[in-house]
Design a protein around this nucleic acid. Structure first.
Length: 378
DNA sequence: GAACCGTGGGG
DNA sequence: TCCCCAAGGTT
């Protein structure tokens, strides 16, 4: 695969350090920065503790890495705390009910991660409770792809794996001013990283790259003046770092519409049902809705309501998913009917604990303000 | 390779 | 308000 021209540049006598591609130099400088400026994270063993021989718990590394897929550190913190408190090790998670795992994951998004997490825990527990320590073996577990396998191998098992995530892609594409679109440049970026990975402290190197991307080499307004790789970076020297990485323009998000039905019993219980295990919001709980392309007219509404009743409009909510936006007209009715097949009544004090994705909490809040908030005992 | 799959925060 | 996009994986 075609590496960029940094090798040639160096060989042809470019005396400046910029874009010199001195991989060893970059790694050691980055590790020095990491020792002083690393973030303190609940799943991380700090450099000083690593030096005293402490090692991260593979279970916690795995759990955090899955939670962190396409998700910010701040969003993950409270979920990670709750998970390790409920399920301290992989055997505990394997013993848990899948339904409870979905409930604990509710709100974090990308719910297939939760299903794969549970499936992975079941597998690992069945095989003795130890995670595999190689990239290849890790890669075969559900929910673990190229990135996560490399991250676990490096961080938990001290292996010199090339860990390439969005942060690393951004840092490297700036270091070498990679002008080809990111989708095409991934191979080159990986090759650069493979050369940079140090023989010692590969896990800290991986985390250092990601910390650098998250705190210094940010997508917008990078803090180049604070960057330990400033003198190695072609983007700060010769151009505008915000230009990299180059991304292709994305398409328009279509708008879908539908109606949602909040049936309320006299005691405040709400009628819910479980979604199919696969696809959008798979395995999560919802209130009954029409299809999400439906026209909002009387016929559609009556046909899709869970039962005939005095459905009254009570607002409209909007929600944006990865590849479409959704508007739901919310209808509400009081009833004392029995739950139709496939549905169940959730008592008022249970609603906050249900496996409700955010869009469904919005729907319920539109009909009954405060219904999804945790009740304070008094 | 491309589509699908959530949510929240920053600018 | 709107746009960007984050420690990606699966099909």
């Amino acid at each position: 695969m075609a590496l960029h021209d940094q090798t040639r540049k160096t060989a042809s006598g470019d005396s400046s350090k910029a874009a010199s591609g001195d991989s060893r130099h970059i790694a050691s400088r980055l590790l020095g920065w990491y020792d002083a400026h690393h973030r303190d994270l609940p799943w991380r063993i700090a450099p000083r503790e690593m030096a005293r021989g402490m090692r991260p718990d593979p279970y916690r590394v795995w759990l955090s890495e899955v939670m962190l897929q396409q998700t910010t550190v701040e969003a993950v913190r409270s979920y990670f705390r709750a998970f390790v408190q409920k399920w301290p090790d992989v055997e505990a998670l394997a013993a848990a009910r899948a339904e409870d795992v979905m409930k604990a994951w509710a709100g974090l998004g990308y719910y297939s991660r939760a299903r794969n997490l549970k499936a992975c825990a079941d597998l690992v527990a069945r095989q003795g409770g130890r995670f595999p320590d190689t990239q290849t073996a890790l890669r075969e577990l559900p929910g673990i792809g190229a990135y996560t396998a490399a991250a676990i191998a490096a961080i938990a098992f001290d292996q010199p794996a090339a860990v390439v995530d969005g942060n690393v892609e951004r840092v490297v594409s700036r270091l070498f001013s990679i002008a080809t679109p990111l989708s095409e440049a991934k191979g080159d970026i990986r090759a650069y990283v493979e050369r940079m990975v140090p023989a010692t402290r590969p896990g800290d190197f991986a985390q250092a790259m990601m910390d650098l991307g998250a705190t210094i080499c940010t997508p917008r307004r990078p803090r180049c003046m604070l960057c330990p790789l400033r003198e190695d970076c072609s983007a700060t020297v010769s151009s505008d770092p915000e230009r990299f990485p180059v991304r292709l323009p994305r398409g328009e998000k279509p708008l879908r519409r539908g109606a949602a039905f909040v049936a309320v019993r006299d005691d405040g219980a709400i009628l819910l049902r479980k979604r199919a295990d696969k696809g959008l919001l798979g395995g999560m709980t919802e209130v009954p809705t029409t299809g999400w392309t439906a026209r909002i007219d009387g016929a559609t509404t009556d046909a899709a309501a869970p039962f005939p009743g005095n459905w009254r409009p009570t607002g409209r909510i909007g929600h944006v998913f990865t590849h479409f936006a959704l508007e739901l007209d919310v209808f509400k009715a009081m009833t004392d009917a029995a739950a139709p097949a496939g549905h169940f009544w959730s008592l008022a004090h249970e609603i906050s604990g249900e496996a409700l994705p955010t869009v469904m909490k919005k729907v319920i809040e539109a009909a009954i303000p405060g219904a999804t908030k945790k009740q304070r005992a008094h």
